[in-house]
Structure formats: structure tokens, C-alpha cells
């Protein structure tokens, strides 16, 4: 889990700001390796340290860095897998939102050790939802916001996503779907590009 996050974070910092600041982050954190491996286990304190150090070096609030990370995960053209796998959630943004409850199970199917916290989607009114992950780290809420906003662009939907106050720790977001088909969105084909003749 933290391997995937750290690797995505590395990709985000290197692509957006270049390898130099990333090198500075690794040095200041005291990480001796060249970079993080998505399938290797790392612990949460390391992720927290990398995040805090990067926010300091990039001179951005941690929340902004995390949300940009979420956007990067969906929009990075060099690594289209996350966006494609999320698009399997449904043909419309509404269907995609409904599919998020299945996301932890889908992830586990592909990678048995992937332990995503449970996700719940509640429809609180017409085109109005509350997405909650009671067990998620608060940091994940910002990443999730970035992912959901980028996916809305991908579907061409017009949404407003805001943090929802929670009595307990965890993450909750309020999502208002203003226009499911506001813009054209990006095309999505079920078959990956290189499999058409496979």
C-alpha cells in the first residue's frame, strides 16, 4: 500500500518538479536507495516523513501536494493503468461513483496483499453523495479528492467535491454531481490499445 503510494509520489515529484528536488527529499529523509518500489512494503512513518519533507522543499501545503498526487495518479500519460482500471467502474461518472464501494475488493483480486480501507457511498439527495472511508488515513482523503476530480474531468462530468466533517477519524467527502456530461471527456475503450490484434 505505502509502496504504491510512495512510488506514485516519486513519479509525481519527478515529473512535475524534476529529479533534483526528489533527490533532496531522499537525502533529507535519509533514504539510501535510488527510489521506492511499488510492490515492496514500507511503513507509514516513512511515508509521513517523505510527505512532510517534500512539502517543505516544494514550498507547498501538504494538502495541496496530496491532492496533486491524486490528480497525477489518474492523468500521468506514462502510467495509464490506474486511470484505465478506474474507468472499468462504469460508463458514466455516476456509475463510477457507485463502483467505488467495490474498489477494495477489486484491488484485492488483482493484488491479494493490497489492503484498501472499506469505502461507502451514500446518496444523500439528487446527484448528491457522501463517500466515506472511516478507516482511511486523513492524508488519503486529499489524494482521493485529487483522484475523484481528475476522474470527473476524464468522464467530462462537472462535480463539486468538498471534505465532509466527520465525528470520528477517517475520511468523508461530499460529492455533488452537477452535470454528468458537462464536457466531452476522454474516450475509453475496454480493450487496451496494444491488444486489438492480440
Amino acid at each position: 500500500m505505502f509502496g504504491l503510494l510512495l512510488r506514485a509520489f516519486q513519479s509525481y515529484v519527478c515529473t512535475t518538479f524534476g529529479p533534483r528536488p526528489w533527490g533532496q527529499v531522499l537525502t533529507q529523509v535519509g533514504f539510501m536507495g535510488e527510489g521506492f518500489e511499488p510492490l515492496l512494503p514500507y511503513d507509514r512513518p516513512l511515508f509521513d516523513r517523505v510527505l512532510a519533507t517534500a512539502a517543505e522543499i516544494l514550498e507547498r501545503p501538504v494538502e495541496t501536494v496530496l491532492e496533486d498526487l491524486g490528480t497525477h495518479i489518474v492523468t500521468n500519460p506514462a502510467y495509464p493503468a490506474p486511470r484505465r482500471l478506474l474507468r472499468f467502474g462504469g460508463a458514466t461518472y455516476g456509475d463510477f461513483l457507485l463502483s467505488l464501494e467495490e474498489l477494495p475488493d477489486r484491488a484485492r483480486l488483482a493484488l491479494p496483499e493490497a489492503a484498501l480501507p472499506p469505502v461507502m457511498l451514500e446518496e444523500t439527495g439528487p446527484s448528491q453523495y457522501v463517500l466515506s472511508c472511516p478507516l482511511a488515513l486523513p492524508a488519503l482523503g486529499h489524494v482521493l479528492t485529487g483522484i475523484l476530480r481528475a476522474m470527473a474531468d476524464d468522464y467530462g462530468a462537472l462535480v463539486v467535491i468538498e471534505p465532509e466533517p466527520l465525528p470520528d477519524p477517517g475520511v468523508a467527502l461530499s460529492i455533488r454531481l452537477h452535470e454528468p456530461e458537462f464536457a466531452a471527456g476522454r474516450s475509453f475503450r475496454l480493450a487496451p490499445r496494444d491488444a486489438a490484434h492480440g
Binding site: 518500489e37 510492490l39 493503468a81 484505465r84 482500471l85 484491488a107 483480486l109 488483482a110 493484488l111
Partner: peptide, 16 residues
């Protein structure tokens, strides 16, 4: 979905 997710995981494994 599974075929594609597995392909992605496998590519990571090969890279790793």
C-alpha cells in the same frame, strides 16, 4: 478488469 490489473501487476513485478 482482472486481465488488465494482472497485466499491470505483472509488469511491475518484471520491473521490480
Amino acid at each position: 478488469y482482472l486481465a488488465e490489473a494482472n497485466a499491470a501487476v505483472l509488469a511491475e513485478m518484471r520491473g521490480l
